[in-house]
């Protein structure tokens, strides 16, 4: 199976801050991978580099076989990588439905109206269709952000904290909808998440970031149990063996 996305030796610094320090990762098709890590660990930076928003100081990003470093977010979107944002990026003065219509029309779907109705149903947004995107609850904004990202029929979907800012009891429901839609669209998913229950429940593989680097990579069972992950990512107090 050839990889969907390969990151090779990515480096990125902001002044003295190392946001990416030698990141090497490979993502296989049809997988759901979670990126975890404390605040400032470099998860969003990784997504920003992959989507061309930031240019790495060095390293390569291969989408399939193609090196996409230097491409703009727009070009990368057109190649087949889409994303949602930590803070939903919507058209606030348009209705929920119009937001999707813009997305579907840009994606040049045969019938944007029908595709929009489909997305409204799949993402359970239909009751909010006529409301202004700027005025609906955060959970709905999160879902809309993902629905818009999926409109481009991408091969790879990057989700930056799809459940942040919503109440704990809504998280599972949101992820059920999101992952269900992603599976139906047969896209590879990489999602950033702080809630370890969500990670354990939805991810097939977990990559743990710390200080711009990767400290663990593997199945949820092993990664979430690893001592350095519990210490640096989950923030448990673990007494030093030596102490």
């Amino acid at each position: 199976m050839s990889a969907v996305l390969t990151a090779q030796g990515l480096h990125k610094s902001f002044g003295a801050v190392r946001a990416a320090a030698d990141i090497n990762l490979t993502f296989d098709p049809d997988t759901v991978v979670s990126l975890i890590g404390a605040n400032g660990a470099g998860k969003t930076t990784f997504l920003n580099i992959v989507t061309g928003y930031l240019r790495p100081d060095s390293g390569h990003i291969l989408f399939g076989e193609r090196d996409i470093v230097g491409f703009s977010p727009r070009q990368i979107t057109k190649l087949g990588i889409s994303r949602s944002f930590q803070i939903p990026q919507l058209f606030n003065s348009l209705s929920v439905r119009e937001n999707l219509l813009v997305a579907e029309s840009i994606a040049a779907t045969d019938d944007p109206q029908a595709a929009t109705d489909e997305a409204l149903t799949r993402f359970e947004l239909a009751p909010y269709a006529a409301q202004k995107a700027g005025l609906v609850p955060e959970g709905i904004r999160k879902l809309l952000d993902v629905a818009m990202a999926l409109s481009s029929r991408s091969k790879l979907l990057l989700l930056d904290e799809p459940t942040s800012g919503v109440s704990a009891d809504e998280k599972v429901a949101i992820m059920d909808v999101v992952i269900g839609a992603a599976r139906a669209a047969r896209v590879t998913v990489i999602f950033v998440e702080h809630d370890m229950d969500i990670v354990a429940r939805f991810a097939g593989r977990v990559v743990a970031f710390y200080d711009g680097g990767i400290i663990a990579d593997g199945s949820p069972d092993t990664v979430l149990r690893a001592e350095n992950v519990r210490r640096y990512v989950i923030g448990e107090e673990i007494p030093h063996a030596a102490a």
């Binding site: 979107t77 919507l90 348009l94 219509l101 813009v102 029309s105 990202a149």
Partner: peptide, 17 residues
């Protein structure tokens, strides 16, 4: 709608392609 989209959020417009 696209023009309004550009007014509201250019980042999203770019990220839609």
């Amino acid at each position: 709608r696209l023009a309004t989209g550009v007014r509201d959020n250019e980042l999203r417009v770019s990220y839609l392609g």
